[in-house]
Amino acid sequence: MDEKLIEVVNLKQHFRLGKNNIVKAVDGISFDIYRGETLGLVGESGCGKSTTGRTIIRLYQATEGQVLYEGENVHGRKNRSALKKFNRKMQMIFQDPYASLNPRMKVGDIIAEGIDIHGLAKNREERTAKVHELLNKVGLHRDYAGRYPHEASGGQRQRIGIARALAVDPEFIIADEPISALDVSIQAQIVNLMKKLQRENNLTYLFIAHDLSMVKYISDRIGVMYYGKLVELAPADELYNNPLHPYTRSLLSAIPVPDPDAERARRRKLYDPTIHQYTVLEQPQMHEVTPGHFVYCSERELEQYNSGRAIARANG
């Protein structure tokens, strides 16, 4: 479990919108993804989660920083065949089940797109067989191959999107809010499907979501983003039990609790970024507080967090 599959090093993605208007969608984030794990990435809308995922998979050229896949720089200069190799290893599942399937293509052709591009089937029969196998894998009847996307429901469309990604036999899948556009009852089905596929195909996931409630079930580790920065990264349980960054605490306080009494007592904490009061001299950065638990803070805050933990330990 501790083989690094992906290393993101000081990744930046700045969009220039005008002369003096630069959006720093991702502003210097670093993290590793281990083979076989699910890394959850959460944060409010517009904090740069999608941009992070899209830059990792090279849909956007990084402004600065590196993405290493098995130690190899993804953004470096590549020839065509090396690029194609990467294309097969990394795939993406998208948020909007309506915008992510071409309305003019049959489901079978949508799923087979990767097979066609990479020449993975020798003839039509093999192609059809592969499509049927993929449909079966994601829990859809093979008849879907001959239909158009608009005949499928949101959940079924998301399954088709998953099948399309699986067609090239990837190792790593970026799932960009794959369930947030779906009905709650369907969300669980898709999450279960993704877990099943992870076991069967030994997949590694980067699972993006905007709230913490579903992520905690699927993720081994969770990263929390706030305005282009990663503010906390920890194993899922650790993040739930010992959140350190005030923004993480605020996100956690937003999750409804299944117990009615506790739910009534739940108070939503709001995050106020001015409480840090970073001085000009302080350079907040990622600090490892306990093994595997990173938080973005200044030296001063680090001491506070450490002493807070010491007190908690003494009391507990």
Binding site: I57, N87, F94, G114
Partner: peptide, 13 residues
Amino acid sequence: NREYILAARTLGA
């Protein structure tokens, strides 16, 4: 920037 075009690009189209 429709997602199905992004999907095609990630597949290597």
